[in-house]
Write a protein that binds this DNA or RNA. Sequence first.
RNA 1: GCCCCGGUAGCCCAACGGCAGAGGCGAUGGUCUCAAACACCAUUCAGUGUGGGUUCGAAUCCCACCCGGGGCACCA
Length: 841
Amino acid sequence: MPGVDHPPEHERDEMSEQETYDVEAVQEKWLPVWDELQPFRADEDSPREKKYALTMFPYPSGDLHMGHAEVTALHDVVARYWWQRGFEVLNPMGWDSFGLPAENAAIRNDEHPATYTYANIETQYESFKRYGISFDWSRRLHTSDPEYYRWTQWLFLKFRERGLAYRKNSPVNWCPNDQTVLANEQVVDGKCERCGADVTKRELTQWYFKITEYAQELLDCLDDLEPTWPTRVVTAQRNWIGRSEGAHVDFAVEGHDPITVYTTRPDTIFGTTFMVVAVDSALAEELVTDGQRAAFETYRDEIRKETEIERLSTDRPTSGVDLGVTATNPVTGTQIPVWATDYVLADYGTGAVMGVPGGDQRDWEFATVMGLEIIRTTQTPEGFEGESYNGEGPAINSPAPGVDAPLDINGLGVAEAKRATIDFLEQRGTGKGAVNFRLRDWLLSRQRYWGVPIPIIHCEKDGEVAVPYDQLPLELPELRGADLKPKGVSPLAAASEWVDVACPTCGGPAKRDSDTMDTFVDSSWYFLRYCSPTYTDGPFDVEKARAWMPADIYVGGVEHAVLHLLYARFFTKVLRDMGMLDVGEPFAAQLNQGIVINQGKKMSKSLGNGVSLGDQLAAYGVDAVRLTLVFAGPPEDDIDWADMSPAGSLRFLQRAWRLSGDVTSAPGTAPEGGDVALRRATAHTVHEAAELIEGYRFNVMVARVMELVNATRKAIDLPESRGGCGPADPAVREATEAVAILLSLVAPFTAEEMWERLGHRPTVARAGWPAVDPGLLVEESVTAVVQIQGKVKARLEVAPDIAEADLEQLALADPDVVKAIDGRPVRKVIVRAPKLVNVVV
RNA sequence: GCCCCGGUAGCCCAACGGCAGAGGCGAUGGUCUCAAACACCAUUCAGUGUGGGUUCGAAUCCCACCCGGGGCACCA
């Protein structure tokens, strides 16, 4: 084992000063003790104030890796801190155990996905235990257990009863590799978030959660989360929800219902010279005239073949087809042509846009290519050389000079012009102010096996029929190996003895819905299940949830900034509206850790730069690895393992541990009367550590503990003449005990061992926060700096409560200061008692 | 293109608008050793990405730019 000295047996006697810290033996020693003591069992009936420490539960792929080690080490600092501060802490762990990797493994190995899943869960469970995180294992859960997913199904049915789960036919994102649909959030740069394949569109009837109904509230509550959530998560969610304000405007079409468009710039309506609808929308199909139908269909089919990547590409050529109809501008009465194009999105707004080339660059390009008229409606600034202009400026051509129109907004600024136009449209009944969101409803159906079956039966006569609540859980049929191969429809559809059922309403032949739910549904409420993991009368015990929710901290990866975190917020709000929760937000505070990389790059098999957590633990021990991860830097920063020194961490732990063997005073020795300098250092460290932890500045906290260890070492070793006090001084015991308790947040094995060597009973994890005499925090004297023109010229030892006038007098009398002033007239003296005096000459 | 976050010793990182350095790594020298490794002791090193501004005083506040990371991006 590198870094640890194992002297031969015969030398041991001469090495009493250099005791050996046997990492492995210490680890083996304490695990069974903790199992016995169960120090982290959360009790909601406890009179202590409660804290809920939550960390994102893992997907069970293989064993734990460096990423898991980092996030749980950071998380554990907070959880253990809260225990030490006297809180009752809920710190649960479970597994997000439905999902594709298990299914793919099952196909490869001709087995059941559960085999892979539960084997990995056991492996990870054992690893977590050895890793010494303060989880309450009695609350362990797996989302793939029927007793868990019965409640996922229950929630789905409840949501459906509230109109929040519905089925619709619509073009959806399709991953040709995983052979399943994807939610908007799972398409990143036109690629499948999971496998990276180019996503295409398909027209399918699928289940959706109506998250858009909560769009405004999801947005508004971000204001309250802003102080305690990472900025980047809050902004990412704001961007994702994408609220905009504008108007719906109706354009009359002969022989058809009016076309309603959404626009954020109703004030530019005088510049509307054409109209564009999404080529893949039903509206386009309806509007197209017989004469243009052939051209339209050719164009539409071309676009449909394209992947998301191609459609999203910003340098694609402008394209479109004239639909052959005209619409009437509701303000000017002008007839304008209606086109179909691919730059308008079918599922945003109304799928139709008023073309204002003077105010929108896309419209400008379209008008230029198609030879359509361009009218500017906002005065461009002096020297403007661009094409379209959407900035601030007075309205012009609204109406054009000499034209008589029922509305005149010429000269108004953008905001006033908008308001005037909306007022006019509303009076005329041809439009109204409107708000739009970028957020779409959450597509939750998946054409795969290893997920929660959707508890719906499709009957020809009765339509969609819910599986009765007393028949939940609706369990998955036993499929394995080749049965699970992706075929474009769910594997469940082929399990005829499962799919074919009698309709619960009419008893006639019917079929079960053969899709399963997106696994993000499972993880949208697991933090509630933890509050009462074995509850059988509902997804969770409302009273228990009241006791624990919201989670006081949620630690996890920033990759979930929109997906999981938005969905979980949505579920929480719905459950609140169902009367099951008091809170509208699930996570009061959040901490995102960085990732562990190696040699400047993400660890990956292809780069061959992976670092095995198991190897690191074997080489340096759990505590040293945890300490390294916590000490590496601010939690949000990435950690380059190549820059880290677990050996250095181990060295420090040994130094700390050695202190506990050097203390010679008896346990319980009162610290009063001990060496004051060391007592002050201890008091400061403990005091500051609390502030640092609460600010998530764990790396600095560790540094402070290192300082205290160094100070204690010196106090023991140095002769009295050089500030030492010897191992028998009560201050040494006080400092060492503080070190043990502070270290218990990061290095629980070492801390436990120290605690025992100090003559205490286990477990240090519940020893309580070190008591600090507040008097020791007040310094007897402080160093005041005297500056001339901002440059330090002298230092003075002064009382901390010195008056400004006294300090000024003292400073100006100092010989070094007098010399530095050198007889020049003093123009100004700035005094910041007790730390600083600045003399301006 | 728009919006966030960040640039401090060789490296990882500290520093209420007030002495740029807390801690660690590395390096160098020493103690120990036949020698080395380990351990221990000591020493070393930047003026804070660039340019302006505010201030008695700026790593810290403001503006512009450069570099790195992230989010959104035909969202009308």
